[in-house]
Simulated assay, not measured.
Amino acid sequence: MQALAAFVMRGRLAAIAVTAVAAMMPLLLWLSAAAVALVTLRRGVNEGLLVTVGASVVLGAVSAVSLGSPVPALQAPLQVWLPMVAIAGCLRVTVSLGRTLELAAGLAALAVLLFHLAVGDAGAYWRDMLVRASELFADPAMREALQQQAGDVAAMMTSLWFGNLLFVGVASLLLGRWWQGLLYNPGGFGAEFRGLRFSRAFTVAALVLLVLGGFAGGGLVYDLALVVSTVFLFQALAVAHALVHERGASRVWLVVVYLTLAPFARIYALLGMVDVFVDVRRRVSRPA
């Protein structure tokens, strides 16, 4: 990883190459976002934008040749790289992971709002998409089963889609920050991440959204609540890392936390919110 980070920082062309190639590889879009984050964190927003434009041109050319249109290549720049430049630029200026992740959550919430305004009925939009996807299956029984479940799944798709984008985006930002630490400030990232904390105002706003979303049972407020609460997973992880570090406990505990993160995501997010008010790290810290 350190060698890859060093290659990205060799120059603009190297950064563009890593960003574009990673985006073209299945399941490696997060790596391209981390490269954009590293460049922006180290060299500023202008350089991050130049790398984004350069990688977009490369992707557009490949898409034009292979698919007949450069338009499909716009998904990565619009959904991942440009927001990454914004949040990495915020971290570079504020040097605050908490404020930066709050901005990331705000951008994700704005994206959810714009999506609802653009499609009107988000549930109907996703139902149509899922029904179309089910038609790709040759087995009639499989198609019928998927179409029957389309309504239930469609109700969760907006929050799942944008929540996933937010989670991957923040994880990529943290990877870029870790790379920056490896190259220029060894050991700095660990202390910074263990100290991650959100403001009480932001947490109260998220809790209000969760309550309102619970009563709504779906729709815009419900989607906003679930997406915004995603970032509190990282506060829960920060607490876990801090406790293991402070107490000198086995890293097996961290493995357990990460393995259970997906099935218990909502519980961990709530624990992250609780820590804002309780400050578990301070309460269990060793006396000086």
Rank of each mutant, 00 (worst) to 15 (best):
L82T: 06
F7M: 07
A73V: 09
G54N: 12
L78C: 11
V153R: 13
S56L: 05
A105H: 11
T52H: 03
D121C: 02
V252H: 01
F215T: 06
M129Q: 15
V57K: 08
A61D: 04
R247Q: 08
L182W: 05
L28W: 11
L91S: 05
V274D: 01
A145F: 04
L74K: 07
L103N: 12
A73M: 11
P263V: 03
V227H: 14
G218F: 03
M142R: 13
R10N: 08
A73F: 08
F167Q: 15
V231Q: 14
L91P: 13
V211D: 01
A150F: 07
A262N: 12
V168E: 12
G48A: 02
V280D: 08
Q2D: 09
V252Q: 04
T203K: 10
L237G: 06
V53E: 07
R12L: 10
H245C: 00
G188E: 02
A17P: 00
R99H: 11
G217Q: 04
L224W: 12
A242G: 01
A88K: 08
E144W: 04
P140V: 01
L160S: 12
T100D: 10
A150N: 11
D223F: 04
R99W: 14
G272C: 02
A238F: 00
V228N: 09
A111W: 05
L117F: 03
F7L: 10
L28D: 03
V21S: 03
L31H: 04
W161Y: 14
D275N: 12
L91C: 07
W161P: 00
S32W: 05
Y258C: 03
D152E: 14
R12N: 06
V153T: 12
M156R: 14
T52R: 06
L166A: 06
F193S: 00
V95C: 05
S229Q: 13
L173M: 02
R247W: 05
A73N: 09
P77W: 10
L146P: 11
L4S: 09
S134F: 08
A124Y: 07
V39F: 03
L173C: 09
A265F: 13
L136A: 13
G120M: 05
L175E: 01
R42T: 07
E102Y: 09
G195D: 09
Y268R: 02
E246D: 14
G188H: 00
L183T: 05
A288R: 15
I267T: 15
E47V: 02
A61I: 13
F277R: 13
H116D: 06
E246H: 04
V280S: 12
V21E: 01
G48F: 01
G98N: 08
A73E: 09
V18W: 00
G195L: 00
L49Y: 09
L175M: 11
W161E: 11
D279M: 11
I267G: 07
R281L: 01
V228L: 12
V284K: 12
V131D: 15
V80Q: 15
L237E: 04
A55I: 03
V208L: 15
L82F: 14
E47Y: 01
R281M: 02
E144F: 07
H116P: 00
V280M: 13
P287R: 08
L78A: 15
G169C: 05
V58E: 08
A240W: 04
V208T: 13
G248P: 01
M156Q: 14
D275P: 04
L41T: 02
G214S: 02
A111G: 09
